[in-house]
Design a protein around this nucleic acid. Structure first.
Length: 683
DNA sequence: ACCTTGTGAATTTTT
DNA sequence: TTCACAAGGT
């Protein structure tokens, strides 16, 4: 038996923990609840919410008050809503959504804060432009005042041309800006940097004028756009971080707002507090202070685990310093893992929190640390596939550091590589992960989303159990008789092709020859492109999305890349499709360390490499004898990441380290035990 | 010898 | 976007 028999004693003490939380809630003692991986943190949060509803629900209802529960992700919001069940009392949502909902009505005050922010940015830019230490502005600074003004006038209306051409080579740029460039600047770097700054200053000045004028409606409200991670301040658009900043400022500034919030929402619970931004904690601290000095009933509960803070803007261990006097409750029970795993993860976190399994039969797992080279990876995995009798019902989960490797091992390497080599994704390389690998299909980029729709359409058609209205939309369906439905279905099913390109060609051939308007409508809906339906139209769509603004002589190369993309084996597309849907069809599943947060797997292999991006000594520094003070943050980040990775395992955990380990051998051994050599010839 | 330019490669994740 | 580096210019 393994992890089946809980100890009665520990179950009792687990109940006691929840009892402590409940009494903190009753006494309005602000609380920080720390529970390590696998402790049942979300369970405790839900229990607390249920307790709140049951004990204080009636009173809250009478006063028209609500409980707020804020989470870090939409996924977490959905999970909590599902597990809690319907409750009008509890408002569950992400931090950003909730805060924006709270402050959005106060536009006059928001615009004031926005104005101050713009002035701050404007002053900074003007200061920079005169800063002798910034090399790129030297040539501009050397100009006499009249010359400066002359240049500003000259460049003023050329913003569009400038941004379109700024990356061209020096010679070309000099030709395009013959007047503006050579008479004022010697080098491209200086010309470009100075001009950019001048444009920004102009934009801010213009916006500031409009706000002060107070006539134009557009400049009388601030908008929060959640799709992009960048502010466009001069267009009155803010994004995630600035939203938190403005929320902090507006709440800090207006005590009426504090009063409204404290009165309306006397209980606020924060899920995964370690990942929340410090501004959020500051806001809650302000509210707590307000409530205390006005003798209002008010409670804040932070639920999380400092050791699982793996994102840089999360507050992590600093909650304490931002929100004083929190009552601390720890839960040391572990409901997930075997003893062998728990012992290791306790050593990794090494902060005095020592978890204990609630099960009496918990010594049924194993942890081993291997050193090997990267060409051993496949045989290492193959070995454990056999040893652990891996099959569809008992999968092996393999953790790697980068998405590139996840794509490669999950079998859609070409898809990933070709798409990320296009000009669009080269320019926006940060978007590759979000737009190509997102489990939330709404967040896929335009081209990946088109691929996704086509693949879904094809696979839906192939499956007999797909409801017909999934394939044929309601509008068309309701106007057809049985015979009509069947004919249309047969026509759709006659689209064929062994790769995406052929499939599309076949689809367009039928589109061109059929007089079935319903077929045409379905295809038009499916593609949803502005261009004409057909090979040429689609090609021009792809060129526009992936290779916008390229030179004429490079169009052939771009077309060839698109052809390559479309002729990738269907199987690869299928694997990508399953990955996006989180349908784990293979016996071995690959994830990034980061992506596994909150999950648990029976068998885990962690592939570890010293280098991670530009950081070439990530793990060797972690295992070193001492940490430099300047690298403390980085050290904690590595520690937490390793903690998250290793604590996913329920029973079996193997680590394969791919680099040299001699310098810190004993420190590895003190965490993972004996270091084993993985020998490919004798696995 | 020093500076500028062009090129290519590189992390994770969320809102 | 940011960094490192090689090639080329002054």
């Amino acid at each position: 038996m393994c992890l089946q028999n809980p100890s009665q004693e520990l179950l009792e003490s687990e109940k006691q923990v929840q009892f402590d939380i409940n009494s903190a809630i009753d006494n309005c003692e602000h609380l920080i609840f720390n529970a390590g991986a696998g402790a049942g943190k979300t369970h405790a949060l839900i229990e607390s919410l249920k307790y709140l509803i049951q004990k204080h629900g009636n009173r809250l209802k009478i006063h028209n008050q609500n409980i707020i529960c804020i989470t870090y992700t939409n996924v977490a919001t959905n999970e909590i809503k599902e597990r809690l069940g319907n409750s009008e009392l509890v408002k569950v949502s992400t931090i950003h959504k909730r805060l924006w909902e709270l402050i959005e009505p106060y536009q006059k005050q928001l615009v004031e804060i926005h104005k101050e922010n713009i002035i701050k940015h404007l002053q900074q830019l003007e200061e920079d432009l005169n800063d002798e230490n910034i090399k790129n502005y030297k040539e501009y600074q050397a100009l006499i005042k009249d010359k400066k003004d002359e240049f500003i006038q000259l460049i003023k209306d050329k913003k569009d041309i400038f941004y379109k051409n700024k990356d061209k080579k020096v010679g070309e740029l000099k030709e395009i800006f013959s007047e503006e460039f050579t008479s004022y600047f010697k080098t491209k770097g200086n010309f470009v940097a100075t001009t950019k700054t001048i444009f920004k200053i102009n934009d801010f000045r213009f916006c500031l004028e409009k706000i002060v004028e107070g006539i134009d409606k557009k400049y009388m409200s601030v908008n929060y756009l959640s799709k992009y991670n960048n502010d466009i301040l001069y267009k009155m658009i803010i994004s995630h971080d600035t939203l938190l900043d403005y929320a902090f400022q507006i709440i800090g500034r207006y005590s009426t707002l504090q009063q409204i919030l404290v009165n309306k929402y006397p209980y606020i619970l924060v899920d995964e507090y370690q990942d929340t931004h410090e501004n959020v904690v500051k806001i809650l601290n302000i509210l707590a202070d307000y409530a205390q000095s006005n003798k209002n009933k008010f409670f804040v509960g932070y639920f999380g685990d400092t050791a699982q803070n793996i994102y840089d803007d999360g507050v992590g261990e600093n909650v304490d310093t931002l929100h004083h006097g929190l009552k601390k409750i720890y839960k040391i029970h572990n409901r997930r893992s075997a003893n062998e795993v728990i012992e290791v993860i306790n050593k990794i976190r090494n902060d005095g929190i020592e978890q204990e399994s609630i099960y009496e039969d918990s010594s049924c797992g194993s942890v081993k640390f291997y050193v090997g080279s990267s060409n051993n990876i496949d045989s290492f995995i193959a070995k454990y596939k056999q040893v652990w009798a891996v099959n569809q019902g008992n999968k092996l989960h393999c953790l790697v550091l980068t998405n590139k490797l996840v794509a490669q091992y999950n079998g859609f390497e070409n898809f990933y590589n070709i798409l990320s080599s296009t000009t669009y994704y080269k320019k926006n390389w940060e978007s590759v992960t979000t737009e190509l690998l997102n489990n939330d299909i709404l967040k896929l980029g335009n081209v990946p989303s088109l691929f996704y729709r086509i693949l879904k359409f094809k696979f839906d058609l192939e499956q007999s159990k797909t409801p017909l209205t999934t394939i044929i939309n309601q509008e068309i369906y309701k106007n057809l008789n049985l015979d009509g439905v069947d004919k249309l279905l047969q026509l759709l099913k006659s689209i064929h092709g062994s790769n995406l390109q052929r499939y599309l060609i076949s689809m367009f051939e039928i589109y061109g020859s059929t007089d079935d308007e319903n077929y045409k409508k379905i295809i038009e809906n499916l593609l949803s492109i502005e261009q004409e339906i057909g090979c040429d139209g689609l090609l021009s769509y792809f060129l526009n999305e992936l290779y916008r603004d390229i030179e004429d002589d490079r169009i052939d190369d771009a077309t060839e890349n698109i052809r390559q993309l479309l002729t990738i084996d269907f199987l690869e597309y299928k694997k990508w499709f399953h990955f996006i849907n989180k349908e784990e069809k293979e016996e071995i599943v690959y994830h990034t360390y980061h992506g596994t947060k909150g999950e648990e797997y029976e068998n885990v292999i962690v592939i570890m490499q010293n280098g991670f991006g530009k950081d070439l000594t990530k793990f060797s520094d972690f295992f070193a004898d001492s940490v430099e003070l300047s690298k403390k943050k980085r050290y904690i980040n590595t520690k937490n990441l390793l903690y998250v990775a290793c604590s996913r395992a329920i029973k079996n955990l193997r680590i394969l380290y791919l680099d040299d380990i001699l310098d810190f051998k004993s420190n590895v051994e003190s965490v993972f035990g004996e270091i084993l050599e993985f020998d490919i010839t004798n696995p």
